[in-house]
């Protein structure tokens, strides 16, 4: 870990402008991802801005019938919230499928969205990795790739985004509210927050430098049956091989987002039109153009089979 300076921000604007004033600053929320990465010098911020005291820890109704979730709301709190459980069961279930009770007590809504990949080569600083060290190459390509992306990857990076929560947020059409160093605010649809790796896998989101997430807003509830199905080798405390988050309406229409397959939560709205025709049809469209490796080709049939099970379960 490199030495760093630390401050506790007292307002969102101050936090954002502090970030702009320091080259190489980072916000720290729960710290459950950032600190691990700093210990290994995968992240090497020179300055940390602690955003825990900013008061973004509330879940409030919005004027159009949705909910605004403060960026600092802990995963445990969010998963247990009665409104979330009633109207956005997918989110609650996705959260509870992730990490462990202790980690969820600490992990925050914004931090969860911005957690970094679990590619093992990303974690080993002896290995080339374009995400960690732009231009150094990608050790995963041609290496051990069972966990890696099957779609939307590039010649530069085949990593996946590991968040469970983000899959639910994507299916729920959440939007992310931010404040920039100049004090301006904006709304980013969740679909646009995470990027595909392309030639610049180290740039993972569309947030600009020093841009602070203040909240995540859910639109008004859409009803339906909410199912989150996380598939993994052990029963708990493991990242997904694949996960399927679905909202299925009585008439068989609905939404599907998939985790463990791409550099971002994977959702193809056009594929959802196939839902009444079943998992095979949806998956064909959802994973069209997939380019798996030999080791992770199983994810294609796994998505289809898992989605099949989810749709069957939704029928009751």
């Amino acid at each position: 870990m490199k030495s760093f300076t630390y401050e506790k921000a007292n307002s969102p604007a101050a936090a954002a402008s502090a970030a702009a004033n320091h080259s190489n600053a980072k916000f720290i929320a729960g710290g459950t991802n950032l600190l691990d990465l700093m210990k290994l010098e995968i992240e090497t911020p020179a300055h940390l801005i602690d955003v825990n005291g900013l008061g973004f820890d509330k879940i409030e109704p919005t004027s159009d019938g949705g909910l605004r979730i403060g960026a600092l709301v802990r995963n445990t709190t969010l998963a247990a919230d009665a409104r979330i459980r009633r109207d956005y069961g997918l989110l609650s279930r996705a959260l509870l499928a992730g990490a462990s009770g202790q980690l969820r007590n600490r992990a925050t809504t914004a931090g969860n969205l911005l957690q970094r990949t679990r590619c093992p080569y990303f974690y080993d600083t002896n290995q080339p990795c374009n995400k960690r060290k732009p231009g150094s190459g990608c050790a995963a390509i041609g290496g051990v790739t069972r966990q890696h992306a099957v779609i939307g990857a590039s010649e530069a990076c085949i990593a996946t985004h590991p968040s469970d929560m983000a899959i639910a947020m994507r299916a729920l059409d959440a939007t992310v509210q931010t404040v920039r160093p100049d004090g301006s605010t904006r709304d980013i649809p969740i679909a646009d927050l995470h990027r595909l790796p392309g030639d610049t896998p180290h740039i993972e989101t569309t947030l600009s430098s020093g841009e602070l997430i203040t909240s995540v807003t859910l639109p008004k509830p859409v009803g339906g049956t909410h199912i989150y199905r996380k598939v993994r080798d052990r029963a708990s405390y493991a990242f997904a091989l694949v996960s399927v988050g679905a909202i299925v309406q009585r008439d068989g229409t609905g939404r599907v987002a998939v985790g463990g397959v791409a550099h971002k939560p994977w959702r193809v709205e056009a594929a959802e039109a196939e839902m009444p025709r079943g998992a095979k049809a949806v998956t064909a469209r959802l994973l069209e153009g997939a380019r798996p490796t030999k080791e992770n080709a199983f994810k294609l049939s796994l998505v289809e089979r898992t989605l099949g099970a989810v749709l069957t379960e939704a029928k009751g």
């Binding site: 679990r118 093992p120 974690y123 080798d233 052990r234 029963a235 708990s236 405390y237 493991a238 990242f239």
Partner: peptide
């Protein structure tokens, strides 16, 4: 994280 051993749920 990468070398999995059983957890209680297993």
């Amino acid at each position: 994280a990468g070398y999995e051993v059983p957890v209680h749920a297993d």
